[in-house]
């Protein structure tokens, strides 16, 4: 059988031509909206969690904010833990911070995952991003990335009652304990960074950049995506061989 000739049967839809047209339209659409054409799919045993923008907690921030919602992330973590095809999780951070409770919830979820996890701080991992950054088995920070360490407080509010102060102090203690437990930094050093004067313009605290975060022991190593994936694969191998992850 020969292919139908358009000049013989002009009424009949030309299937191959139609499909080409659809494909072409798809490609044009993809280029317009995504700036690229699609790449062939391959199976991945590594899943990726993004902690981007503000960490959103109990309240919903106005829609112009770019947010990481914990109701999105937490089911992903649970699914990743259960799915046998997923062997490792890469967590990418570029966050300005946000809700303390939601941030700690995410950090606890990540640290209690039984699968190898690697965090990579790109751009910024500020404020409540710090406990999330240290919650993994191994952490990387890009050389240009930065992390702001500062005390917890209610911005712009005068703390009038000792109870409020104590509540905040306890809240802060949770962050300090989590960070010191999951990284190499000591409590003294972390608090010293937290209460530094003169580093931030209108605030106390420290802005640690790339190498400094490694020097203070918050982050394991300076690196990028390549190293992160390599480390994750190493950890996966290690887990496969020993059955127990350090």
């Amino acid at each position: 059988m020969t292919e139908p000739n358009p000049s013989i049967a002009p009424d009949k839809p030309q299937r191959p031509a139609d499909r080409n047209k659809v494909d072409e339209q798809n490609i044009v659409e993809t280029i317009k909206s995504f700036g690229q054409t699609n790449i062939p799919q391959v199976d991945s045993n590594i899943h990726c969690l993004n902690i981007i923008g503000q960490v959103e907690g109990h309240m919903v921030l106005p829609p112009h904010n770019k947010t990481t919602k914990y109701e999105h992330i937490i089911p992903q973590i649970v699914a990743a833990e259960q799915n046998e095809k997923i062997e490792g999780i890469l967590i990418i951070l570029n966050t300005v911070g946000g809700d303390v409770e939601a941030g700690l919830a995410l950090a606890e979820m990540i640290s209690s995952l039984s699968k190898p996890t690697v965090t990579l701080v790109l751009g910024g991992g500020h404020s409540i991003g710090v406990p999330i950054a240290v919650s993994s088995d191994y952490s990387y920070i890009a050389e240009t990335a930065t992390m702001t360490i500062h005390p917890i407080r209610l911005t712009g509010l005068v703390i009038g009652v000792p109870q409020t102060f104590e509540y905040l102090d306890k809240m802060q203690e949770r962050v300090v304990r989590f960070v010191t437990k999951h990284s190499q930094i000591t409590e003294e050093k972390f608090k010293e960074l937290m209460y530094t004067k003169g580093d931030l313009a209108r605030d106390i605290g420290t802005n640690v950049i790339g190498q400094d975060a490694v020097k203070y022991g918050i982050i394991n190593e300076v690196g990028g995506l390549g190293q992160s994936i390599k480390k994750l694969k190493e950890l996966i191998e290690l887990k496969k061989n020993s059955g127990v992850l350090q």
Partner: peptide, 24 residues
């Protein structure tokens, strides 16, 4: 409220910039 970000809170909670359509 225990949100603390590098972005000024006035900007975070600014509701004036409304989206034309409601995303779902």
């Amino acid at each position: 409220m225990i949100i603390y970000t590098a972005i000024p809170l006035e900007q975070v909670f600014n509701e004036h910039e409304t989206l034309e359509t409601e995303n779902f």
